[in-house]
């Protein structure tokens, strides 16, 4: 059970976002993917869950090639994946409880009482106990985000894909979410891929961190290796150094093999 991306290419018109991305997330591992805005991090997640089809390259989850899976098998695989959206993406015509119950009903095998119990349990995990009858628009952005997380973990997926789970949250809630990510890994053995800009979170929750730049991974390592990296792109990102060109559309000369460490500073 793992996520494996090989030679992934994706573009929109003349704009090439992913340019031969190779990525492995091993079973039970939590990997963070960092990179500048527009680098294609969310796009990578959408390929993994089958919302996007690559122009070239392969995406394997659980040994299954996602882009070529028949619809029924893709839906079955998706029930093993939880997706935490950047802006929660809660269904605003439903209460939070109904939002969370959607995935549980689809997965099946639970009675109404068990579904209700699981909804409350999932909400309690994200410190939102008693919020099940509220509508998303009656909650703050941070609460919506946590409800989105509760929805993703409710049906106990094997894989969790987090799209910036802590952006826009206060430091305390960020720590709550970080702990939750760690708890999912520890208690349920979930394999996670986390998109984040928050390096503090990335260091706290990750087994490995990868830096996406110009549609490829330019650095992969443990949090410590990442912190000690001398790759100028990584350093510029981590230290928030302005001036590094970070539009995915306009490549930096990376050397013949696109290797890390040859980024040009302007």
């Amino acid at each position: 059970m793992s996520i494996q991306l090989r030679g992934l290419h994706k573009g929109f018109g003349s704009k090439k976002i992913l340019r031969g991305l190779d990525l492995d997330v091993d079973e039970g591992e939590t990997m963070s993917l960092v990179g500048f805005s527009g680098a294609g991090k969310s796009l990578t997640l959408k390929h993994i869950v089958g919302l996007m089809k690559p122009d070239a390259g392969t995406v394997h989850v659980d040994g299954l090639e996602v882009p070529t899976l028949p619809r029924e098998k893709l839906f079955k695989l998706r029930l093993d994946m939880g997706y935490v959206f950047q802006f929660a993406a809660l269904f605003d015509s439903m209460t939070i409880g109904e939002n969370i119950a959607m995935g549980l009903r689809k997965k099946g095998g639970m009675t109404q009482a068990q579904i209700r119990e699981r909804v409350e349990e999932s909400l309690a995990l994200v410190d939102l106990a008693g919020f099940s009858s509220r509508f998303p628009q009656e909650m703050s952005g941070g609460q919506q985000k946590r409800a989105g997380l509760a929805r993703a973990i409710a049906y106990r997926p094997k894989y969790l894909l987090y799209d910036e789970p802590t952006s826009g949250l206060d430091p305390v809630t960020t720590t709550v979410i970080d702990r939750l990510v760690l708890r999912m890994k520890k208690e349920l053995g979930v394999t996670s891929l986390v998109i984040t800009h928050d390096m503090k979170s990335a260091y706290a929750i990750s087994d490995r961190i990868g830096m996406l730049y110009e549609g490829r991974l330019v650095e992969v390592g443990t949090p410590q290796e990442f912190q000690e990296s001398r790759n100028p792109i990584v350093r510029a990102f981590v230290e928030g150094e302005p001036g590094l060109k970070h539009d995915a559309e306009e490549p930096l000369p990376m050397g013949g093999d696109g290797a890390a460490g040859k980024g040009r500073k302007r």
Binding site: F85, A89, M102
Partner: peptide
């Protein structure tokens, strides 16, 4: 609105057509 707020994507990720 559901499309731009990713609610349709969310439906898909929960295996709904």
């Amino acid at each position: 609105t559901m499309r731009v707020s990713e609610q349709i994507d969310a439906l898909e990720t929960m295996a709904y057509n």
